[in-house]
Design a protein around this nucleic acid. Structure first.
Lengths: 126, 126
DNA sequence: GTTTGTTTACGAAATGATTCGTAGATGGAT
DNA sequence: ATCCATCTACGAATCATTTCGTAAACAAAC
């Protein structure tokens, strides 16, 4: 049942769908245009392919079709993190966390949040 | 100066080079064979391409060429984490960290390590 | 009903990644 | 020197992804 992993371009579209919910091709296209060069039919084609792959659902009841993401952002993120841990960090989630924290300079509040999360996680282990 | 990002297959090879240091094509190929189907010339071609892209260095002084990674594992990991944060986690390093911790069930020791790391990081902020 | 603008469908070109067959070079063993 | 095993070089086939041109469907405006 697991869907094939989205490509780069598909991910861009999914991000928009996750943020804005159901969208027409034109809406998606207009968002994409702001950050990249792309023809309308290119976006359309991508979404048709995503529909075939069941990455999105399509409501075709009216002339202008309406698309919705068919995989959750959380699941997708989880999948991709898992893959990155396996292929780039030799299976060590720790190493990835360190990279993410080190590079990106999380804010003090963020660090506090993570610490709380960790303390909770530790309690559960006991 | 930044090198083009390695493809999936190139990353597999880089991982081996990072782990074992300088290698011949045959060495790499024998490691790859353990986990995937691939002809020798396929591996060779990949490494030639990686050499063109400057992802690896090649010592061609003897008949059997010897390859070395020309990008560091840390830099590559950093680049890829950054990209993932941007394209999959809407710029939030936190969200990625949570996913990594949540899914992968870091061990108690690992959690402790992260906590220590965080405490140090907090001190520096003060 | 004809025109106009927007939409979807289709197919094919362009690009990038992966795979491998074949040929030629090299070096060691006989 | 010849043979044999192994290596590199090269080019092409295959496959996936991205791109877009063109045509047909449709609806609203005239």
């Amino acid at each position: 049942m697991s869907q094939p992993k989205p490509t780069e371009s598909e991910l861009e579209i999914l991000n928009i769908l996750w943020e804005r919910g159901a969208c027409t091709v034109r809406e998606i296209h207009e968002v994409l245009e702001k950050t990249k060069e792309a023809g309308y039919t290119t976006t359309l084609k991508l979404m048709q392919i995503m529909n075939e792959k069941n990455l999105v659902n399509r409501d075709a009841s009216s002339k202008t079709h309406i698309y919705q993401a068919n995989i959750s952002q959380e699941d997708t993120q989880g999948q991709m993190v898992k893959k990155m841990i396996d292929t780039v960090f030799n299976g060590s989630a720790m190493d990835l966390v360190m990279q993410a924290l080190g590079n990106h300079k999380a804010s003090k509040d963020e660090l506090e949040l993570i610490k709380q999360y960790l303390e909770q996680a530790e309690k559960k282990k006991k």
